[in-house]
Nucleic acid binder design. Sequence first.
DNA 1: CTGAAAGCGCTTACAG
DNA 2: CTGAAAGCGCTTACAG
Lengths: 342, 342
Amino acid sequence: MLMAAIGDVARLAGVSKATASRALSGRGHVADATRRRVEAAAAEIGYIASPAAASLVTGRTMNVGVVIPFVNRWFFGEVLEGIEQALLAAGYDLTLYNVGSAGLDRDRVFDFFLARKRVDAVIAVGVDLTERETASLDRREKPLVSLGGSGTGGALLSIDDRAVGALATEHLLHLGHTRIAHLAGEGASTHPESVHGCRREGYLEAMAAAGLASEADAHIVETAMSMPGGYTGALQLLGHPGRRPSAVFAASDEMAFGAIRAAERLGLAVPGDLSVIGVDGHEYAEMFGLTTIEQYPGEQGRLAVDVVLHLLGEDVVADPLPDSGAPLPTRLVVRSTTAALR
Amino acid sequence: MLMAAIGDVARLAGVSKATASRALSGRGHVADATRRRVEAAAAEIGYIASPAAASLVTGRTMNVGVVIPFVNRWFFGEVLEGIEQALLAAGYDLTLYNVGSAGLDRDRVFDFFLARKRVDAVIAVGVDLTERETASLDRREKPLVSLGGSGTGGALLSIDDRAVGALATEHLLHLGHTRIAHLAGEGASTHPESVHGCRREGYLEAMAAAGLASEADAHIVETAMSMPGGYTGALQLLGHPGRRPSAVFAASDEMAFGAIRAAERLGLAVPGDLSVIGVDGHEYAEMFGLTTIEQYPGEQGRLAVDVVLHLLGEDVVADPLPDSGAPLPTRLVVRSTTAALR
DNA sequence: CTGAAAGCGCTTACAG
DNA sequence: CTGAAAGCGCTTACAG
């Protein structure tokens, strides 16, 4: 079956290709009767415009690239779903680049895939962009929105990770805990600007404000932001009977779940012997009864799309855009894994 | 900064656009010296071909559409990462369509997004495709590869879900269990062709072969393929003290994790009071000591890409393609959540 | 409101 | 091995 082209539609409707194009795209004026005739003709032969031909002349691809280091961590999966839905609703495609830390793949994505004229804009999720990377996008005049990562250039959307770290720690302090450990994400100490780094900073600040700075230093373990990561890290922390903490602030809920299982394995009751607080509002948090600081990644993804569409000059954005620089919302949810020190 | 076009490269190298094109694409013969000159010119001005212009003439987009119902279930996330890596390595983009069960979004994806000439092929993961959907792709002559879903048309890659269900059940039978429950995925009984349906069939077959058909009927609960789903389902199953099962076959590892937590909550020891077996080989399985039937979703994703590339006529496929119709590999891994009935 | 024409940036027969 | 020319399927000034 041959694919119908706009010439076929024009012929069937008895108009020129120019008029057919205007009628179908809604750009430029067309008489109502003509428009209806063209639309009927297009429907009859199942015409759909070739995106390649259209973008060759308009320079727009109706396509947004998403760079994301994980798909399988809860936070990232939720963000991705939110982005996908919002993009689909706006008629845009989503091209996925699942690249993490530095490496050949990452360079390839920025130098080849994103440098081509195939995406109109880029959303980077949880990626700490280098100068070179943002400059490359900038040179191609591609709008960039970063969600929860660090880097210059582009719009930056993020929660206040430092405040989150401080709040989680203060919650435990106010329950009377002083031996408070922190399960931090890998690279937290070497990358103070990163998400992990900021949460760690918040923890250190709150501990220092309570006069527990030296206590804090001895109680940080860096590990993968996953359940096994939290499990292993917590085992390490809780194995030291003499200096065993009475509370743990985990940098993510998945790590917190792992810490809970580690406590169970060691015969420690939660929250009787150990209080645990996480960050995220993971879908499993309720099942674990986990006290956590919720964030709303699906919503964050949709918001990133709103900002991108705005930067692309689409004025269809219904929701108000956030004040630039204002942190994204979070909320402390107290459940049954934290309790007063006994 | 103006984007360099192939004409600029040609001028700089002192050749025609045709020769520049041939030198850069590797199609057609070009003298070695000429090729080097063209390549140097391209590098100098940072030339990258416009995909829109190229695909307008070749009809190829170097882009594969992936239709997937979840991003945030372990199996699907792993498959997606596998697909992404393999596609990136082959120079293809991945356009993500995160659509689940029937609905407006799903129709929109098939009728509008996939119907346009923007993808060269489609990989459908865990989607039960309708006649209409496969016909639509077929009409556009887009190769289709289905991974672990049902549907006619296209290549179909999948593990033998019926055999997996039977093997899991037989493992429990051979340990002496007779009161074996099954946590099935939603829709297992109404969609016998689906992944959930086949695993349920395997369970029923094995139970019937052991003369326990009536036992089986009373012990199936359908629930979401997630940890909370397994938790709720298991609570329902284990709450009945008189008819309490001594073993549970969960249709996924995430459900199995939920079942383990449910048992703990009810004061039942695993495996002392309850044996649990799952399916997947989830990254958390080892931490839970879970007995499971492993499958290899990342590998499955890469394989789906190999098949797609083959269908697209790319002969760069290194790995041998599987025998058509042969089930994908699985493996029983016995850990500490299953034990002999005491 | 509508049409004829040019052009977006490539690739590919067709000659040579 | 290389070049001139046509053409992929659209959209958009430019006229009218």
